[in-house]
Every structure is written in structure tokens, then in C-alpha cells.
């Protein structure tokens, strides 16, 4: 235990850098994918042929191992293997594959009579989409967002195997030091803590923007 504190005292700043980098590499892709998934999910929800193509593509993308994708992207994009852009793009693809599906599922689950009521009250399609359909779809969409976020936080560590930063560096550091425990334990604790904090934040946002889920009902 004291070894862990010693390690933090002497390497605190590099641990902090790794943590900050980990947060960026894990969460930026989720944010990009979330913004892209809303319009794409709407298309998938609305047009049956698009649904088939998009969901099949998504499940194939999801099947490709992350380490393989991380190593193949430089060849396709012309980037360097050590470029963090590869990580961001790879994780964006995974998150997108998941979020397009859950966004479409969420929109599918909205009661059509509610939409008819909104139309009857004079809502134009665009306003209806943003103020009625999307908010009602949010619980399902955010469930997908939680899964994508937790998956990303644990997947970023893989990037350390090919020399890109994040908390995974603490694992490879422990490896280089002859299986020295402190950095390994710190890395594990921090990445689980990060996943939990991100998850709790999304749940808090979900409670904030879906007040009807708590009001009455049961």
C-alpha cells in the first residue's frame, strides 16, 4: 500500500497526464458519435432499406477487434501508427455502431399516438422531432450512451500496446519495470473509477432531462 503512495508521490504528474489523456481519448469519440448518431438514427428509424444497410454495417464494424482496427487505420488513412487520431476514429466507429442502433430503437419506442397528438396541436415536423420525439426517445438513447462510454473507457487502455497514451501506459510501465505492481494497481483503480464516474454523470443527466420518468407513474 505504501509503495502505491510512494509511486504517486514521485510519478504523480505523469499519472495525471495519463488520466487526462485517457479521458480525452475515451470521451471525445462518444461525444462525436452521439452528435452523428442522432440524424443517422433518425434516418434508420424512418427508412427501412437504410435500416438494413446501417445495422448490418454496424454489426460488422463491431465485430472487428479494436487492436486490429487501430493497426489497420494508419494504412487506410495514411496517419502514423502513433497518431492518437487513429484511436479517436476507431472508438468513434464502435460508438457510432452502437448508438445508431439504440437511437433508432429509442425512436421506434415512442408511442405514435403521442406524435399524432403533437401534430394535432400544430407542431411542425422539425419542432415535433426536437421537442417531443427526441426527448421521449432519450431514455433508450442514453442507455446506449452508457454502454458505449464504459466500453470506451476500458478499450482505450489497449492503445498503450501500440504506444499511445492513456492509463494503459501505466500497465505497460509496470510491465517494463518487471511486473511492478503500483502503476498496474493505480491504472486499474483509476480506469474503473473513471468508468463509474462517467456512468453516474450520464444517469444524473438522464434523470434531469426525463422528469416524467419520476413524476407519478407508479
Amino acid at each position: 500500500m505504501s509503495e502505491i503512495w510512494n509511486y504517486l508521490e514521485t510519478n504523480g504528474s505523469s499519472v495525471l497526464t495519463a488520466l487526462v489523456q485517457h479521458i480525452w481519448l475515451a470521451l471525445l469519440p462518444v461525444a462525436i458519435a452521439f452528435v452523428l448518431a442522432l440524424p443517422l438514427g433518425a434516418l434508420v428509424h424512418r427508412y427501412l432499406p437504410v435500416r438494413h444497410v446501417a445495422l448490418t454495417t454496424g454489426s460488422v464494424v463491431y465485430t472487428v477487434p479494436s487492436l486490429a482496427l487501430l493497426l489497420l487505420l494508419p494504412g487506410v488513412l495514411g496517419t502514423s501508427v502513433l497518431d492518437p487520431t487513429n484511436v479517436v476514429i476507431a472508438l468513434t466507429l464502435y460508438s457510432l455502431a452502437l448508438l445508431v442502433r439504440t437511437t433508432a430503437d429509442g425512436l421506434d419506442a415512442v408511442d405514435t399516438t403521442v406524435l399524432q397528438a403533437a401534430t394535432a396541436m400544430g407542431y411542425r415536423p422539425l419542432r415535433r422531432w426536437f421537442t417531443v420525439q427526441l426527448p421521449l426517445a432519450m431514455p433508450v438513447v442514453l442507455t446506449g450512451l452508457r454502454v458505449a462510454t464504459v466500453a470506451n473507457v476500458s478499450m482505450v487502455s489497449v492503445a498503450a500496446l501500440i504506444g499511445i497514451g492513456g492509463l494503459g501506459q501505466l500497465f505497460t510501465r509496470g510491465f517494463q519495470l518487471g511486473f511492478y505492481l503500483p502503476p498496474i494497481v493505480i491504472g486499474l483503480v483509476l480506469s474503473v473509477a473513471l468508468a463509474v464516474v462517467a456512468d453516474v454523470l450520464i444517469v444524473a443527466v438522464q434523470r434531469g432531462i426525463t422528469p416524467w420518468a419520476r413524476a407519478g407513474g407508479r
Binding site: 464504459v150 473507457v153 476500458s154 478499450m155 487502455s157 489497449v158 498503450a160 500496446l161 492509463l167 494503459g168 501505466l170 500497465f171 509496470g174 510491465f175 511486473f179 511492478y180 505492481l181 498496474i184 494497481v185 491504472g187 486499474l188 480506469s191 474503473v192 468508468a195 463509474v196
Partner: peptide, 13 residues
């Protein structure tokens, strides 16, 4: 949420 790489390193240690 557990990164497999970290679990592997822990087990190797």
C-alpha cells in the same frame, strides 16, 4: 469496466 490489459498485468505480476 475493468481493462483486460490491466487485469493481465496484475495477474502476470
Amino acid at each position: 469496466a475493468l481493462p483486460t490489459l490491466g487485469v493481465l498485468m496484475l495477474m502476470l505480476a
